[in-house]
Design a binder for these strands. Structure first.
Lengths: 117, 117
DNA sequence: ATTTGTGCAAATACTTTGCATTTTT
DNA sequence: AAAAATGCAAAGTATTTGCACAAAT
């Protein structure tokens, strides 16, 4: 059953952050038979079940994340990789009030990095 | 000349945030002849020239922005709309140090909103 | 036997590329 | 007449849909 292959790969993996295609390539490497469509569908069902987070979209690709704790990210444009920043590491003062009829769901912070000189 | 049509639409517009397709639809409505490819190419050339910002990607679509000041955003998932938050409105304490060999380019903050039941 | 879940080919959505044509120098 | 800019059809990616089949109730 293909859905279990995905679970297995996620559990064993150091894959904190990955795209659907990352997973697809790992599967191919391991000679497991699964289509990209199934990987997408599986990942999205996991997001609904709150097993995974869809953290953000960089360079046109959705990035999924196994760290379910509230946290922020560094993003290295050069390598295309995200690095977690624990929630406590960034403190925010003066949050603006949300517009009428809405409430804050969550706060995303991404610190974009460049290579030093 | 199609590139000027884009400029005109941007200037007259209350379009603080828009996708390439938003612009395409406005053009069609005004019976202006321009292809989506040209709109994409024009917008990206404006980003290079620092006339526009490519602010983020929501729901798989690139969102462009005419506000060139440093600022943050509310994002209303329900409506798909971004609302600017001026830079001074959010103060951050304790920024973590960037990883070795990198420096901070910029900080993106998105406050995701839900409808208040 | 009806409902729910699974897997993926095909369809769609978003964006970029390559190149013919026009404009500028 | 060479170089730069323009416009877009066609190509290229990323993702979702629709449906045949399987498993569970």
């Amino acid at each position: 059953m293909q859905r279990n292959l995905v679970v297995k790969q996620l559990l064993n993996g150091k894959n904190k952050h990955f795209t659907a295609e990352d997973l697809y390539d790992e599967m191919k490497f391991k000679k497991k038979n699964i289509s990209l469509a199934t990987i997408y569908n599986t990942l999205h069902s996991f997001v609904e079940k709150k097993i995974l987070k869809l953290v953000s979209v960089k360079e046109g690709k959705a990035i999924f994340c196994t760290n379910m704790n509230n946290h922020y990210h560094f993003f290295n444009r050069k390598t295309g990789k995200l690095i977690d920043i624990p929630y406590e590491k960034i403190k925010i003062k003066n949050l603006p009030k949300p517009p009428k009829g809405t409430k804050i769901d969550n706060i995303e912070i991404t610190i974009n990095l460049n290579t030093k000189n």
